[in-house]
């Protein structure tokens, strides 16, 4: 048997374990990274520890490393899959939230149970931009350790809904040029093509190679950032221009209606100016 120099052994072990660990962690999912519960934290540390020990020490039996890794992978993996199916199991492994504030009143017993002092609670509230405990309607400590806060109605941020303002729905914008290269798939998602992109860029008087980043919204308006920050790029004007034209025409019709002496024409201008005003009111949310 050829004896392999130990350093080569270490290299081989390291590479194998890196690849193995990579795939195991991939399979365990990204959930691990964002919200670790106790079980997942421990399994993550142990997986890393096993890999570290067997990488460094050439005298250990490498097959033990594989067995240990697989077991420490399978159990958390299995637990996660069962937790997906069973609510009871999930409550057991991941824990339940604890209500800290209900109906604006602090639950002292629950605070004590979770080992939170009043200072801790205030700190967590400040994390949520709440400085006055009485501003809170409801607060719950999530199993992950973060505090979710529902402020009282009057302390919540004002939304268009509160003001009764109608807004057009907007979808996510698509990035169509990155580093001077056209991305075909996002363009196709908007059912647009490269000719459209080129003509839009022509309108702005820039070429594709000079564009660092270009994004199109779901109404097909293009906004670009150039490599050369000295060149000013026109902002999309199509919609504001349309709205302005509509307002101008409405004013014109009103003026005609006032200046004409023919009753029939007067009536016609008046009717249409009202119609146009109505149209402006309806379309404004979509043009801003």
């Amino acid at each position: 048997m050829i004896t392999v120099p130990e350093w080569i052994n270490v290299i081989l072990r390291s590479l194998t374990l890196i690849v193995l660990l990579f795939f195991l962690v991939k399979l365990l999912g990204t959930k691990q990274l964002s919200q670790l519960n106790i079980f997942e934290t421990i399994s993550g540390i142990v997986l890393g520890g096993i890999a570290a020990i067997h990488t460094m020490d050439p005298n250990t039996n490498f097959s033990y490393a594989l067995i240990a890794l697989v077991i420490w992978f399978l159990v958390p993996f299995g637990a996660e899959k069962i937790a997906l199916k069973s609510k009871a199991f999930r409550d057991f492994t991941e824990g339940k939230g604890t209500v800290f504030i209900q109906d604006g009143k602090i639950m002292e017993d629950n605070l004590k149970k979770e080992g939170y002092s009043t200072d801790d609670l205030l700190e967590k509230l400040r994390d949520n931009n709440v400085f006055l405990a009485s501003d809170v309607e409801f607060a719950i400590l999530e199993p992950s350790g973060s505090l979710s806060v529902l402020p009282k109605r009057e302390n919540r941020p004002l939304t268009p809904k509160d003001l009764g303002i109608k807004l057009a729905p907007s979808k996510e914008p698509q990035t169509v040029i990155m580093d001077g290269k056209v991305l075909v798939e996002p363009l196709a998602n908007l059912s647009l093509n490269q000719q459209w992109l080129e003509s839009e860029l022509d309108k702005m008087n820039v070429s594709i190679e000079n564009v660092f980043l270009a994004q199109a919204d779901n109404d097909g308006q293009l906004s670009v950032d150039l490599f050369d920050d000295m060149i000013a790029v026109p902002a999309p004007t199509e919609k504001p221009l349309l709205l302005a034209t509509m307002k101008k025409c409405q004013a014109d019709l009103e003026l005609f209606s006032l200046s004409t002496e023919n009753m029939q024409s007067k009536e016609m201008y008046d009717k249409n100016s009202k119609k146009l005003q109505n149209a402006i009111d309806r379309i404004t949310p979509y043009l801003s």
Binding site: A168, N218, D219, G220, K275, I283, Y286
Partner: peptide, 29 residues
Amino acid sequence: ASLGILANKTQDKESKQAFENVEQIIKQI
């Protein structure tokens, strides 16, 4: 014409509907 273009370009059904409705009003005017 601008409304027609916008109605064809938009990906959202509700916006498309709004643009088309207003286009009809404009047509009458």
